[in-house]
Amino acid sequence: MQSIVFWLLAIVSIAAALSVVSARNVFRAALALVLCFVTVAGLYITLNADFLAAVQVLIYVGGIAVLIVLAIMLTREIQRGSQSNRLRIPAFLLAGLFFAVVAFALVNTGWKISTDDPLVPTTPALASRLIGPDGFILTVEIAAALLLAAVLGAIVLVREK
């Protein structure tokens, strides 16, 4: 059961990811990206990371994908499809090299496999790791400050004089 679901999700997500880069129509590429996000959320569920799966759908599908689609809608001359240029072959080589390095690292790492039962429910454990005593509260606060700075920067950039 587990492996059937995994292979189904893996095949769909890789096919979706391939069509993101190969589709001529940018709007369809964005929709394929959404499909890819959803299947990744499905993979999280098979790994018992239910919170992560819900957040993946909430942020990537509900937020980022919607903004990407909006940006595409606001772009002119979109019907011509995605443009290509002379950097095609170097980009392909670089991507291939990156893939080879990542694949090599993945295969040659001795992964630790936990034999414990997964945590149910996951949210209290996550919360106490993040914001409990001796958790990662400093990191969370730094990330929040960074996001605030980004929002303020965006406001300053678009403000009318």
Binding site: D50, V61, T122
Partner: peptide, 25 residues
Amino acid sequence: NLNIGVLYVMAVSSISTLGIFMAGW
């Protein structure tokens, strides 16, 4: 009975926006 029910509701219901987008485009 998901123990992340509220989050699930918010996440899933945000998808149907994409349907309206797809219809519009």
